[in-house]
Design a protein around this nucleic acid. Structure first.
Lengths: 203, 203, 203, 203
DNA sequence: AATGAATGAGACTTCATTCAT
DNA sequence: CATGAATGAAGTCTCATTCAT
């Protein structure tokens, strides 16, 4: 066996371990607060030694940061898909975005973990979590603004006020479903809210 | 000095200490998660010894439980005031309730603490916090239902769906303001949302 | 009411309180080790405030010391009664002493407490407890010695060896009954052992 | 270095640490009551960190339980040796057992610790300690019974009464020597008691 | 890369003792 | 005398992090 091949195999193995740990971190952080979650919980959940976890991530904060990074990556995918989508009015695309995001959240423990971490993170990491929140704000505001332009959204009310209510409703749905049933009912909630939001935003 | 007076004075002192500790607990739990909050933080904030805190509350859970009790008491006051209020339509009373609650939350660290604890409590205490949540659900549902009867709320949409959206919006406003500015903008958010909710609920 | 009478009444009350605390201490120390027993347990058992306990006894060690004193007093009573008794041989008086002591122990929590304390006392108090033990040694040795003189005890075996076995048997009976049933079967054990000891000691 | 050898070496290290802690626990528990003994005393005595102690034993009770297990193991060894011994009468084997046990106790701090723990254990652990006591009872009763059959023990007195006195004497010797000189004189006491017990039990 | 073992700082909690009335 | 309240030292235990293979 060549030296090079051996090295590559080792690297492959390392990557796999890292991913397993990351998924385990997602499951654990989705279930409990940052402080309540123990690194031992994560390494146990992954079936990998604690020492190995420290090899791949320098410390607890780094584990959380890595989870947040993946979360944002996955959310950005959904975001981009909708933003780049050209069919339909801006209003439709906004509401599609909410539904798409709801589906993602309901089905992905790692994304749930990211959401949960947002409210229980040590101060040093807060910014990292908020980065995504800012982008989200920007996107909804943009879509509402475009809606006013293309006529799918009413112009009678300041766009930022409309965006505010939309965000509140979506966040509320997330929090309530997260609290009560581990986000399982989130897609349903968003689907039921859709006609209400249309009524609110349409001209 | 009469015996009775003496006893009363001693009790007064104890009661005062207990209250000071409770308020301090409110401030601390409003600022951080249950696990992140240290009892030392609370006793320091109150300027009272840690031992004394343990004299008045048996353990950390009991401190949180006492905070929750006070929170629910204060929230119930606002709730009752609005429910017993006879002027105005049910819709107006519902929206008044949201505004009243927003004012209470924005101005009362102990109530903020209760809200925060709801998402970071150890399982044994979860029920204690949810008690209030259930009552809140019932009250909004009732007010929406009464609104349908007295004609102030549309009958075209199932009452429970309307209540759901109202709750989501209110919870979302709470969470966002709590996260971003310590609930200071909550009353403004609710005030801005009022016409939107009227538009949604009115026939 | 005269000043003097009032003072006397207060003293009476104080004495009664002190006794109640002492009995409570007996019950508590009979049930558990010195370290496991909390002064709060004692004051609660007596239905008297902790502060009052500290008024009557300076600290925990003093409480234990007071219990030991009463124990020794009560044991010495039994001891004296038998020693001063003139009827019967020395052997009979020795065995009577064992039985009398067993009865005392089985019926008196405070004496049980003294016994228990003997093995769980802080070093500073050890001497106080051992004082009695030494006296006990002396008495049994004396009685055995007198038995040899009056012919009720065999002279074929060194008196101190005989005394040793007698003590071991009695202590063993105490420990076993104390461990297994709170000393209730101690008198029975001693009664059953009597003929065995007679067989051993008689010429 | 082979993988297997590496693992074995690591385990060896853990096992060695665990044993060192166990011996230290024996020394400490032999010197003082359960409640008086601090885990810091044990880890200091072993020259190992307190955290490590918690790594090997979950909590204080578990440390005591481990000590008891080892004690019982070592006592059972002596017990088995004597029981399986075929030479000599039952009476001789019984007395040999007492002497063997006395030697073991006098020379082994861990066994001394077990004895001491028996009287100062939290209730949850009592059973664990009594297990051995029951076996001891059974063994002495059995040997006495066999003695009656093989003629080495008198049949004039109920076997269980004889066993009772034997146990009392042995326990008394243990307690007195434990109290007065850390069990150093126990073998001497038992040796001196041997002819007395023979006199008592022989036909 | 990976692991089991080890460490130390810090948290919760208990309790003897003191204080104010 | 008596009491409720208050304090601080000390003990048990947890866990992020580091170490030695």
């Amino acid at each position: 066996m060549s030296r090079v091949g051996e090295v590559r195999r080792k690297q492959q193995r390392g990557i796999r371990t890292r991913l397993a740990l990351l998924e385990a971190a997602g499951r654990v952080f989705a279930r409990m607060e940052y402080d309540k979650a123990k690194l031992k919980d994560i390494s146990d959940d992954a079936g990998i030694s604690l020492g190995s976890l420290y090899f791949h991530f320098g410390n607890k904060d780094d584990v959380a940061a890595a989870v947040l990074d993946v979360q944002q990556e996955r959310m950005t995918e959904v975001l981009s898909a909708v933003v780049e989508e050209t069919e339909g009015t801006s209003l439709e695309r906004l509401l599609d975005l909410l539904e798409g995001m709801a589906e993602l959240i309901a089905g992905d423990a790692l994304v749930q973990a990211g959401i949960r971490l947002l409210t229980s993170l040590p101060d040093e990491l807060k910014d990292r979590g908020y980065g995504y929140y800012d982008e989200w704000q920007r996107v909804t505001a943009t879509l509402v603004g475009e809606g006013v332009e293309d006529g799918s959204v009413t112009s009678g009310i300041p766009a930022h006020e409309l965006a505010e209510v939309v965000n509140e409703t979506f966040v509320g749905a997330q929090v309530l479903s997260g609290m009560l049933d581990g986000w399982q009912t989130l897609p349903g909630r968003v689907r039921r809210a859709r006609p209400r939001l249309e009524q609110l935003l349409a001209p």
